[in-house]
Amino acid sequence: MSSKQQRRLGPSRTGTTHFWHQRLTAIALIPLTLFFVGLLPNLAGATHREFVTLMHFPVTPILLVLLVGVGLWHMKLGLQTIIEDYVHGEGCKLALQITMTFGTVLLGVAGVIALVMLAAMPPA
């Protein structure tokens, strides 16, 4: 047994990091989800001007950036587990994990940049 395994990190050398991050993001997502659900009726049918006005309250872009960031992190951890469990064949599994991770990062960057742009838009 290698010394890394003896230091409780196991063969993946990441120990309980995946488990712990999934729980941390889950806890953070409870209030963030409730905020998002409360926000949705205000966004349904809103005009662009109304949406931009809503984004000028600092709390809206701050919580939405957190929702996108923490939510996608949580999503990545969950999808990773689903791929590990149900996709057999090492090549296919690896390809899917890479695609999924890149896709998640792309979504996160796009979402945060869109939110920053919206928060910086001048009031119409």
């Binding site: 996108v68 999503m75 969950g78 869109a114």
Partner: peptide, 23 residues
Amino acid sequence: TGIVLSLGSVFLVLWLLAAAAGP
């Protein structure tokens, strides 16, 4: 439901991008 929410997050980001692009 986690997979459904993942799909939803794609639409959420697309919707935000549409808003950022203009009226």
